[in-house]
Design a protein around this nucleic acid. Structure first.
Length: 594
RNA sequence: GACCCGGUAGCUCAGCUGGAUAGAGCAACAGUUUUCUAAACUGUCGGUCACUGGUUCGAAUCCAGUCCGGGUCACCA
């Protein structure tokens, strides 16, 4: 049982004994004591005065005395207005540290045998990954780590939007202007190669438009008049008719794209246990629409389109099948959801998708629920906001800065530059140095993205690049490397500090923070929010650095104190590593020669 | 027009199941290295928590309205 529970129950028991009244545990609020006051935990007694019929001060005084007498862990207390500040005994805190140090699995919860399918990334195959995918991948990967730590059985899946008019445009441009070039022959990464043809198609279409008169000035509309568009549309029809040559070209070009994506996934640390392809699911969904019609939850409109009426739920009527009987976007999503349910029989199905699709996922979930699919209750849309430049939304035409690969190589370059500036790693082999640049560079990028709450947009200024000091990934990594340096000097972790007395404030603060880790993992899992972990690990590192500066570790006054401080350092290092792993961030053993 | 999400220090963000004098980082300024890694630490400066009203012992936090920014409301994906 955690401390908060103990304090709440003790409080309730005391109120029962003193006033014969039942106090609900929820009405007892316990906070961490503000640092300007003495104590570690604070019970807010205002809500309890209704029962005690005493002033806040008297109530707090009484509760404090009883807790001190009965709990065995309260060393002293003070009362300020309605706040009862408790100081727990050193023995209690040392016991907690010892408990954590002896539990290798601390912070990972027992398997709950609940399956989670987590979809993330979801790229289109006609263009390379951009900064939005980066946020997506980091969130998705981190969430899977967090949920796994929370006891879930997580399967990561990707969905490739590998068909449609867009990829056909790339194909048309390639056929027209490609001269059988390949990523190999040009030295261009596969996804960029195909993306370049997509860009070329657009450029050529615009050129062609200049020769056409009577346009509306709206590219989406006007493009339909170009021969390029007609060719692309024709390509799409041929693809849908399984035309051998078209399918072969499509496979070849998508193959290049997957090779390119794979490199980026590997670099950034994204992986998937199963891939879904829209080309294999886009025709599915009619069955589920039929099911809805039979169950009378979907309706056929006079024009033949099938709709679901969500006006009772505050949404609109939504078309699920076109009047000509063909699928729309949501049709296949309904089917894919059903398919995944059959594939995995999961408890939860998480979609990491940008907040532009909030409405879409509301509809998806509601439609499935109306069909009586209980598993639809487990659908969760992990919605995240866009990454924007200071001038607004990143447009692909703004080029370089929005591209995922460029962003990554830029941050790796900066990591190398900054590391070299510090001049601490002369003794590293080239291999070690490169590994460190990668660890730090990716750490900076990942932390930068993950520390922000998913539903808040991220403002990223490419001009200013990503920081390596302060509230950043490298700061946390540095702290870890620092601890490891100490541990290397100590060798074996010595034991036997539990009887130490006279904990310093900074030491106590650090232990308290270690004990908060488990709650943080739980909260991050419940809220689907990696930023909980990011902010936690930052303050952990901050507390540690403060401790490091104030307290000699290897040169501590007594051997018992040294043992304690080493153990405290070691445990902090372990939790930094664990927490960073939940973010998908590696921590280096060394950031300096020696 | 309707709905959804944001608005906290010059900048980037915490805090939001109501609790004490609203916290970090960056930037700026001043310090700390004969002692375990200065990618660190300490201090100074910096706030009408968008605005107005309400709820109550107490509101950045909850409610209503207003303003600003973004998004969505396709037989597009």
């Amino acid at each position: 049982m955690n401390l908060e529970q103990i304090l709440k129950q003790s409080t309730a028991a005391i109120f029962k004994a003193e006033f014969g009244a039942d106090v609900s545990l929820d009405s007892v609020t316990i906070n961490i004591t503000k640092k300007e006051h003495e104590g570690e935990y604070t019970i807010v007694v205002f809500p309890l005065t209704k029962i005690s019929k005493l002033s806040p001060e008297q109530t707090a005084e009484l509760l404090g005395n009883k807790l001190q007498e009965q709990s065995g862990i309260v060393a002293k207390f003070n009362v300020i207005k309605g706040f009862l500040n408790l100081s727990l005994t050193d023995a209690y805190w040392l016991g907690r540290l010892s408990e954590i140090a002896n539990n290798k699995a601390y912070g990972t919860f027992a398997a709950n045998h609940k399956k989670v399918v987590l979809e993330y990334c979801g790229p289109n195959t006609n263009k390379p990954l951009h900064i939005g995918h980066v946020r997506n991948m980091l969130l998705g990967f981190s969430m899977s780590e967090i949920l796994t730590a929370a006891g879930y059985d997580v399967t990561k899946v990707n969905i490739y939007n590998d068909r449609g008019i867009a990829i056909c445009k790339s194909m048309v441009a390639y056929l027209r202007y490609g001269n059988n070039s390949t990523p190999q022959s040009t030295g261009i990464k596969g996804d960029h190669f195909v993306g370049d043809w997509y860009v070329r198609w657009n450029a050529e279409a615009k050129k062609e438009l200049e020769t056409i008169s009577g346009l509306k000035g709206d590219f989406d509309e006007d493009q339909k008049q170009t021969t390029l568009f007609i060719e692309a549309q024709d390509m799409l029809l041929k693809w849908e008719a399984h035309d051998a040559e078209t399918v072969a070209l499509w496979k070849k070009m998508n193959g290049w794209v997957y090779e390119g994506f794979q490199q980026t996934f590997k670099l950034i640390g994204a992986d998937f246990q199963k891939d879904y392809f829209e080309s294999e699911t886009y025709l599915l969904g009619k069955d589920i629409v039929d099911e809805g019609l039979q169950k009378n939850v979907f309706k056929k409109r006079d024009d033949g389109a099938v709709i679901v009426d969500l006006t009772p739920d505050g949404l609109d009527e939504k078309v699920l099948l076109r009047s000509d009987g063909t699928s729309v976007y949501i049709t296949q999503d309904l089917a894919t959801a059903q398919l995944r349910h059959e594939d995995f029989n999961m408890e939860k199905m998480i979609y990491v998708v940008a907040n532009e699709q909030d409405y879409h996922f509301k509809v998806l979930k509601l439609a499935l629920q109306k069909l009586g699919k209980q598993w639809a209750d487990g659908i969760y849309h992990l919605s995240y906001a866009l990454v924007e430049s200071p001038t607004g939304r990143f447009k692909s035409r703004e080029g370089k800065t929005a591209d995922a690969d460029d962003l990554i190589s830029e941050v790796l370059r900066i990591a190398e530059e900054k590391t070299k500036e510090l001049g601490k790693i002369e003794g590293f082999t080239e291999e070690e140095a490169n590994a460190l640049y990668k660890t730090i560079g990716l750490g900076a990028l990942k932390y930068f993205v993950l520390r922000v709450n998913p539903y808040k947009k991220i403002i990223f200024n490419p001009e200013e690049s990503i920081d390596f000091h302060g509230h950043t990934g490298p700061f946390v990594q540095y702290t870890h490397a620092r601890i490891k340096a100490i541990m290397r000097k100590v060798g074996e972790t010595p034991k036997g500090f539990e009887t130490l007395s006279g904990l310093g404030d900074v030491e106590r603060e650090l232990i308290i923070h270690l004990t908060e880790y488990e709650n943080t993992v739980r909260a991050a899992a419940e809220k689907y929010d990696p930023s909980e972990i990011a902010n936690y690990v930052y303050s952990l590192a901050k507390f540690y650095n403060k401790f490091y500066h104030e307290c000699p570790i290897l040169n501590a006054a007594t051997s018992e104190e040294k043992t304690f401080r080493v153990a405290l350092s070691n445990q902090t290092g372990i939790l930094i590593k664990k927490a960073m792993k939940l973010l998908g961030i590696d921590v280096p053993e060394k950031m300096e020669s020696l």
